[in-house]
Amino acid sequence: MAVATSARRCLSAALLAGAALFGTAAAAPAASAETPTPTADAPAPTEAGTSFRTATVIRPGQQATAQASTGDYLYWQFPADAGQGATVDATVELPGADARHGESTWQLDVYDGLRRRQACRYGMQTRTAAADADTVELSCTLRTVRADAEPWSNDPLPGAYYVRLTTLHTASADAGLPVEAAVTATTTDAGSAQDVDGSPAAPLVQGSAARPEPDGGWSSGWWSARWLWTAAGAVLAALAGIAGYRATAGRGRPPHVPPSV
């Protein structure tokens, strides 16, 4: 009888723990996906950098704007941590159609902290604006940032990501005309299915005066929702083990028999 009681007790405790865990697990991605903004009162940057060295830091979720001339190379940088997916959206407000002489092609490039160009999984990176268009919208969704990658690969690693916005082609008479650019970098949690082993000792941040860092700092690399899955698996296995045992073990040794026999 005591075994049954203890098993029941254990079951309920495990279920409680499991429920608590899944509760956390369900809540965790939701919380990190909306990129908490504890210092949200910091105003969004209104200037862009002109090179990797001077790239302006933007916080994920913040819309940075800049006044520029057609042909300028505009640089921003934002932090992306392991397990995050990042999307960069840019909007360029073109000069009035009466001032322009032809169509123009705009391009958004994203580079990692080592200035390696990063592939866009999807999103229109290059777009040609008609001569009478008012705005151009560009977008780039990066691959999930991995905690570790082989040195020979070009996989995105935790660190700074540079955004470069510029015009590729324009009617030569349109060079230097004023434009307004707005850029937003959004980071989302990619989920524990993407969590890989290993971690870099330091994020890839170098060669620039500013050092971007996510709100709350870089992750230590010790947490993953995989802990929850594994723990839940262990609980289920234990419960299934107890159930299997009870189903096959029978009544066991009669209680009146001393254990020494």
């Binding site: 524990s192 299915a193 995989r226 899955w229 698996g233 083990g241």
Partner: peptide, 26 residues
């Protein structure tokens, strides 16, 4: 990540293995 598991197949596998172990022990 640290060799830890993830996903419903993982849970089902662990449960089945647990069940088998229990049955065997029984």
């Amino acid at each position: 990540f640290l060799g830890l598991g993830h996903g419903w197949w993982f849970l089902i596998a662990l449960t089945l293995i647990g069940l088998l172990a229990g049955v065997l022990w029984g």
